[in-house]
Design a protein around this nucleic acid. Sequence first.
DNA 1: AGAAGATACGAGCTATCACTCGTATCTTAG
DNA 2: CTAAGATACGAGTGATAGCTCGTATCTTCT
Lengths: 208, 208
Amino acid sequence: MARRPLTNPRKQASQERSRATVDALIEATARILVREGFDKASTNRIAEEAGVSVGSLYQYYPSKEALVAAVIDRHNEGALTLVRGVLAEVAAQPIEIAVRKVVAAAIDAHRIDPKLHRVLTEQIPRTGRLDNVEALNREAYALFRTYLEGRRDELRALDLELAVFVCVTSIEALTHTAVLHHSEGLTDEAAETLVDEATRLVVRYLLP
Amino acid sequence: MARRPLTNPRKQASQERSRATVDALIEATARILVREGFDKASTNRIAEEAGVSVGSLYQYYPSKEALVAAVIDRHNEGALTLVRGVLAEVAAQPIEIAVRKVVAAAIDAHRIDPKLHRVLTEQIPRTGRLDNVEALNREAYALFRTYLEGRRDELRALDLELAVFVCVTSIEALTHTAVLHHSEGLTDEAAETLVDEATRLVVRYLLP
DNA sequence: AGAAGATACGAGCTATCACTCGTATCTTAG
DNA sequence: CTAAGATACGAGTGATAGCTCGTATCTTCT
């Protein structure tokens, strides 16, 4: 049988202090990833930074990969919450306004912890473990798709699946690139301009 | 003084057989990256696969990173050539047609060696060494910008820099994602549909 | 209080990696 | 032909990584 790499936590922390240990580990990992990069994030180094022993680390995470996966999950959680919220809020609103808010939310999501996000996307070798990231993506697709379905009569004739792909991919790429690569600090003004542009791009694509 | 990691080849191969060695090394590296992934691509393993000794490897590349950089450069070369060609060909043509051809070229570029491209973008920790990738990006920007400048009177009033960013980022993201993540083998038919969609997206964004 | 389980510790094991260097073989110029 | 430079070799070195396990401390339950 295939020895798939273990990336799930080993066990649930049940007592108070162990929960603190787990938290310390995840936070230490994130901190080291940001400050020193993926290469320097050895299990020994992480344990040290967390003020915890390596032994304890392995009580909760079976591998370094699992620890990084935990950081990714926690980071994604925030973004997903944001996106879910906006798409709920926007459900009954007209396309132009909805898209605008979605784009703004995408920017906010990338602004949550840009440095960490950058390390996560650029430095972490994604071997096997893209499952969770893919799940996030799938949910984003589903949410946006549901919205478009509700407004189908306002759209030109199009393949919904395809349209969702085009919109989500474009919005993600634009906001991602703008936040992470354009001078590390996106002005609020620049962000607004970006919202205008991305909105125009997507809306004119969707409408007849 | 800062010890910047050496990623340049160590010396030029002057004799015939040494050029063969260098080629064998780069090809072996690419093969291992595709077949076994970045983790398994140790210098010993690469030398073995190339039918060459580790010693010889280090005659030409000062580090593993340098070797991977060489693979990236070689891979990018092909893509860039393609894009350059298309933008030259298209220089005097109307926007709709030009954009269509550019999108098609972007798809072709991603189809050159999709498996390698995927490993290169997903598994390789991009530490420091994005210089070359950035150079490629910058050239793509410059080329497209030049085209748009020549057609300025047909465009709506817009910030050229920004428009280039929006167009290039979207096209890259759409073609990249479509080729690499949608079932590994993009049908010619699906590719055509994608060209239609991406073209519509970009053209309607640019025109008044 | 005391026992049993949960949590924490960290020295140290094994494996592997990037890389060196002394030696051998091949190529070329004189 | 011969010598000097170019190329190739690969066992070996030092460093570091991930991870284990025997032991110690803390928490909870009776």
